[in-house]
Design a protein around this nucleic acid. Structure first.
Length: 504
RNA sequence: GGCCCGUUCGUCUACCGGUUAGGACACCAGAUUUUCAUUCUGGUAAUAGGGGUUCGAUUCCCCUACGGGCUACCA
């Protein structure tokens, strides 16, 4: 008997997909999946001035990367298409006309210039219940004149006729009862002079036609809810209206206010899911993906930025999230974005990942550094050894080039001051010992090396650092003997020889 | 200005009338790692203010303050 769960995500293709957008999509997805419903992507592209070519595919690609594949969308198709509002233009007009006919909307002939003048002369001017009688519209004009103006194709819009003094209340899934007085809402434009609907008309019509049961959007939409409710009431009946959830905003880390791309640029962290190049300016904005975030970590982080399950668990897979997510635990208040915490999530996910699941991503990173890893078994061993020290994917090449090529530059300054004849002889001897070794693994190597040091009356600590620099090139990396074991006998000996020569 | 939403450590948050107000990030200290990182242990740190309701308020109500959002022929 109950309507099938259909949750829609409705971004406007005007640029990169930012944190707030992905989070809205994520919650939509989780909710839909949890209840066995459909996750629907509809593109709100009714403003042709702001429409950016390519942005729609980009948004879909971002969702794909995050693992949030819609059931219906402009590219995936579906039974309720088209999924682009610009392609549904014809549909909206008739509903607007219907509203006029029923007395819930009216034609307005005021030109943009008229409105500007009005705003200039009247502080806080709103086209509303209080002022519409003084404006040029089908409510104030004689019927004959309205007809004439329409017949002459005079540019006009259709505005909603908000009631004068009515309490409009609805129940938000997150905030509970929210109420407004209709007199506070202005007479929003429903249909623009170019025949395109505004968001207000389009969402309502589309949500009805697409049988949307639940609609989640940012908190910034809360003030326009009365307009939408009014539309539902007169067009389709309140009983068909979807359940609303207004999600809290994601705030900038310093100060207050909505997080914007500007803030992200200023503070040096990404805000878009993936790289976005603005086709107009050709400006590239780096995305979380390209900066080396795992999609699992990215969605995990976003999920927690507005929700938790009440326990102390912080690491959740998408699958776990589907099971545990609940709308009634979504926070009411906005959260400041913390890039450090975002990186922490990524680090946790990298540490917890199996080498093979990281393999292809690490290969990509190595390729950027000019290294082609062909041996998967070897690569997996390298990954296992270094992953705990990698927060972002680009840390992998940094932590592991020396597994693939001998270091070009040795940090000789770390060794030279304490380099002497005794150590030189020790390493020469070590080479001979290594050559004799049958087993080539870390424990044996360590044993052999330390025994040799003892025999030469050298403290192991005095030759460990030189060995590290010889093999790695610097003062970093995992345990030295693990490295030596992995790069192999020949390579280890080769590197020691090279280093001895350089040290003189 | 008006309307709406919100307010617990620096940050993200837990507690849905009774807790030494818990956890995580960050920070600080110690241990481990004869590198760096990881890891482990410990530490500093919060209920915006004022009124109610109640035996008892972080928790419920009101006011104030502060913050945010909206107030376009943008979404």
């Amino acid at each position: 008997m109950s309507k099938k769960i259909r949750v829609r995500f409705a971004p406007s293709p005007t640029g990169g997909l930012h944190l707030g957008g992905v989070r809205t999509a994520l919650y939509n997805y989780l909710f839909a999946r949890q209840l066995g419903g459909d996750f629907i992507l509809r593109v709100e592209d009714t403003d042709q001035n702001r429409f950016v070519p390519g942005a729609e595919q980009y948004i879909i690609d971002c969702l794909q990367w995050c693992g949030l594949v819609p059931d219906e969308s402009p590219v995936h198709g579906g039974a309720y298409g088209p999924y682009r509002q610009s392609e549904r233009k014809a549909t909206y007009g008739q509903y607007a006309e219907q509203l006029v006919k029923d007395g819930h909307a009216y034609y307005a002939f005021d030109t943009p210039a008229d409105l500007d003048a009005q705003r200039a002369s009247t502080p806080n001017f709103q086209y509303s219940y209080a002022t519409r009688q003084a404006m040029k519209n089908s409510l104030t004009l004689p019927a004959a004149e309205t007809t004439a103006l329409l017949a002459a194709q005079t540019p006009h819009v259709i505005r909603i006729k908000m009631p004068g003094n009515e309490d409009i209340t609805f129940t938000d899934m997150i905030r509970g009862a929210v109420s407004f007085n209709s007199s506070q809402s202005d007479d929003k434009v429903l249909l623009k002079a170019d025949g395109m609907p505004t968001y207000h008309l389009a969402v309502v019509v589309d949500d009805y036609l697409m049988q949307i049961s639940h609609a989640f959007r940012g908190e910034e939409w809360l003030p326009s809810a009365p307009v939408h409710i009014q539309l539902w009431k007169h067009l389709f009946g309140l009983e068909h209206m979807p359940q609303w959830a207004h999600l809290p905003l994601i705030l900038k880390p310093d100060g207050n206010g909505k997080l914007s791309k500007r803030d992200a640029d200023r503070l040096g962290f990404p805000i878009f899911a993936m790289n976005w190049t603005d086709p107009k300016t050709n400006e590239l904005t780096k995305g979380f993906r390209e900066l080396g975030f795992l999609p699992e970590a990215f969605t995990n982080m976003l999920a927690m930025l507005g929700w938790n399950d009440g326990t102390e668990q912080e690491i959740f897979s998408l699958e776990e999230l589907v099971n545990r997510f609940s709308m009634d635990r979504v926070h009411k208040n906005g959260a400041k974005f913390d890039y450090e915490k975002a990186k922490w999530y990524n680090h946790e996910w990298i540490k917890g990942a199996k080498a093979e699941s990281l393999r292809s991503k690490v290969k990509e990173q190595l390729k950027i550094s000019g290294i082609t890893a062909t041996d998967d078994v070897y690569l997996d061993k390298v990954i296992t050894l270094v992953k705990d020290r990698c927060t972002l994917l680009p840390d992998f090449p940094q932590q592991s080039t020396f597994f693939f090529t001998a270091p070009q530059q040795l940090d000789l300054d770390a060794v030279k001051p304490k380099w002497n004849e005794q150590k030189k002889l020790f390493f020469a001897e070590a080479i001979l010992q290594f050559e004799l070794m049958q087993q080539w693994d870390a424990p044996d190597l360590e044993k052999e090396f330390k025994e040799l040091a003892a025999a030469n009356q050298i403290k192991p600590g005095d030759v460990l650092m030189p060995l590290r620099v010889m093999l790695v090139g610097g003062k970093f990396g995992p345990a030295v003997f693990d490295i030596a074991a992995l790069i192999g006998k020949a390579e280890t000996i080769e590197r020691i020889k090279t280093a001895i020569n350089k040290l003189g």
